[in-house]
Design a protein around this nucleic acid. Structure first.
Length: 280
DNA sequence: AACCAGGGTGATG
DNA sequence: CATCACCATGGT
């Protein structure tokens, strides 16, 4: 279905549709990409730091080989899911959702690492995007492994954070969230919580498990499940989403959006944030 | 069951 | 320059 070619140290994939890198990388689901301009972005995923570019439905990834694409990037960008079909399906549910989906049709839900997503959204609570990005950057620089021949660092593993104290995390300037990060580390490192198992649990049980971590409530659990476990029916509710649901979707419940409610959430979230006049 | 702290920063006026 | 809000949660 995709035509994959390799040129020197980069790989090209065609045709990549329903993906807008700006919309997808900066809609608040991930915090480790930088916009280099000219439709080019660089970021770190797992142990790879790459530069990517999407033009005329050609996605190019550098440095990357074909097997690297198959092992990592194909899943990461969720390229085997038909977003056009899902958008159509969602649009038929509600006219405002159709409008929201049409506003940013290039958003995809990335398949991020479960630990990274969980940790990221613990940090995100009661916080703004520039600061979240800074805290995560310092977290990676202080505790992650440096990627060979690059200035980038991998996201620290649970093991790398095991046994740390809030004072050890002081350089992150994450405030009261430090103890929450460390509680998650302790629960996972001690085996009280097994992320691999959470993958296979029914949604409600998975959520319940995650919420045993201090600092993980409904919202953070939903974000972790949606962005780290690809549970597409999760519908994280924050201040914006509450307002959006009240005013734009009176009488509608998240469950009414069905199995792809999480994708609907991203369309609505981005639409609402980009059009604050809707709520004046 | 309402409130409020915790840390810091960007946005707003 | 002050104030507010912030992809929340836990504790009182």
């Amino acid at each position: 279905m995709y035509e994959i070619t390799q040129k020197e140290n980069s790989v090209q994939i065609f045709p990549v549709t329903d993906l807008n890198l700006e919309q997808t990388l900066f809609c608040g689901q991930c915090f480790r990409w930088k916009n280099l301009g000219n439709n080019t972005f660089c970021g770190v995923v797992k142990n790879s730091s790459v530069t990517i570019c999407l033009e005329n439905s050609v996605l190019s990834i550098t440095p990357c080989a074909e097997n690297g694409f198959e092992q990592l990037w194909r899943q990461y960008f969720d390229l085997d899911l038909d977003y056009a079909k899902i958008r159509k399906q969602l649009g038929d549910i509600h006219p405002t959702l159709k409008k929201a989906a049409g506003f940013s049709p290039g958003i995809r839900i990335l398949r991020q690492d479960p630990w990274e997503a969980l940790c990221t959204f613990i940090i995100s609570q009661n916080n703004n995007i520039p600061r979240i990005t800074g805290i995560i950057e310092r977290l990676c620089e202080n505790f992650g492994t440096r990627i060979e021949n690059s200035d980038f660092y991998m996201f620290p593993t649970v093991q790398q954070l095991a046994g740390k104290t809030p004072e050890d995390l002081a350089p992150l300037r994450s405030g009261f969230r430090a103890k929450y990060i460390l509680d998650a580390v302790e629960k996972i490192n001690s085996g009280k919580l097994i992320l691999e198992d959470i993958k296979n649990l029914p949604l409600e049980q998975a959520k319940e498990q995650l919420m045993t971590i201090k600092g993980v409530g409904t919202k953070v659990a939903d974000c972790a499940l949606l962005f780290g476990f690809h549970r597409l029916s999760c519908f994280p509710m924050d201040v914006w989403m509450n307002r959006a649901m009240e005013q734009l979707f009176p009488g509608v419940a998240p469950a009414d959006f069905g199995e792809y409610a999480g994708i609907a959430q991203q369309y609505i979230f981005h639409y609402s944030r980009s059009n604050p006049q809707l709520f004046s």
